[in-house]
Design a binder for these strands. Structure first.
Ligand SMILES: [Mn+2]
Ligand SMILES: [Mn+2]
Ligand SMILES: [Zn+2]
Ligand SMILES: [Zn+2]
Lengths: 158, 158
DNA sequence: ATTAAGATGCAAACGATTTGCATTTAAAAT
DNA sequence: ATTTTAAATGCAAATCGTTTGCATCTTAAT
């Protein structure tokens, strides 16, 4: 039995940031009859080790020797997004960012971004669903969701 | 005396949507030593009569006979944004949208957008400042604000 | 080993936005 | 009213993130 000694139980964040097993990731691809290719494995590996959203260019740069074409990354991110394996985020700078999403998790969460140095903090809080429901009802809308990001100056940059 | 009979007092929205006088708008430009030009007058006039954010292309299309060049609109929107006369919004479709802002108003507010027909509803509610303060404090950030937009299916499209 | 659907690389195409530069113009100065 | 000049415009070319057509490859099933 491992870890028999007292140990702080790891806090499971609502948006699961515990790294996913590579096998679980490739398994999800196989289930959908998609191929496990070099580029895809490399992309998933990079996403796996980053706790914050990455741009396609950042993913591309993170690959040692241009393991694949940038267009391939764009295509892969679309596929992964459709499959619900990654979530797309928009920090308002005209560049999409992607984060790996845990199995069964829809990935909905928010960030606090430093407008000086671009540091990113993962945020647990969400827009109060009671208020959102009220907004939806008041306007006759259904399936209402939201995009929400926070911006400010981080401790380092103040 | 007009309207002597019982009448519902018009609800003043937090983000002033009462149309601004053209003279007030041009006055703000003059104060900053900017010129009142044909294109700028046309742009302000169009923004004045639209309660929802407009894209630059929509503003351009709203001008009868190509009263000005699209690049001029882009430049004007940057100027107006810097001057705090318009607020930029991002609905996540890669196209900026602008809305006229009342004098003294910072224009901060949110929208509910139909993902089927793109109908836009102006929203009064805002992210609870108490929670935002807690998020800022918990992470040592200052000057924290947020971008927030709601998405759903409007009554027509359901 | 064969095969076919799926994936990739590459370059061209795209749409929104920005920019350089010659020309025009609003508004201040005379 | 005329002159003057900083500011603004038009136009075309450039930029940037993203998408796409197509020939070529590769995964994974047969
Ligand atoms: Mn995140
Ligand atoms: Mn609005
Ligand atoms: Zn949320
Ligand atoms: Zn708000």
């Amino acid at each position: 039995m491992k870890n028999a000694v007292t140990k702080t139980k790891p806090r499971a964040h609502s948006h699961s940031h515990q790294r996913q097993e590579m096998s679980a990731l490739t398994g999800r691809l196989r289930q959908q009859a998609r191929k496990i290719t070099g580029p895809r494995a490399a992309i998933l590996e990079i996403l796996r080790q980053h706790p914050h959203p990455l741009t396609n260019k950042e993913i591309f740069a993170a690959m040692s020797g241009g393991q694949c074409n940038l267009a391939t990354i764009y295509r892969a991110m679309h596929l992964l997004e459709e499959m619900g394996m990654v979530k797309r985020f928009d920090f308002g700078d005209g560049t999409a960012r992607f984060e790996l999403v845990g199995e069964g998790d829809d990935g909905h969460h928010h960030h606090l971004v430093c407008t000086r140095c671009a540091e990113v903090v993962e945020i647990e809080e969400c827009f109060p669903s009671a208020i959102e429901s009220r907004i939806a009802a008041a306007n006759g809308f259904t399936s209402v969701t939201h995009k929400l990001e926070f911006f400010g100056i981080c401790p380092e940059c103040q």
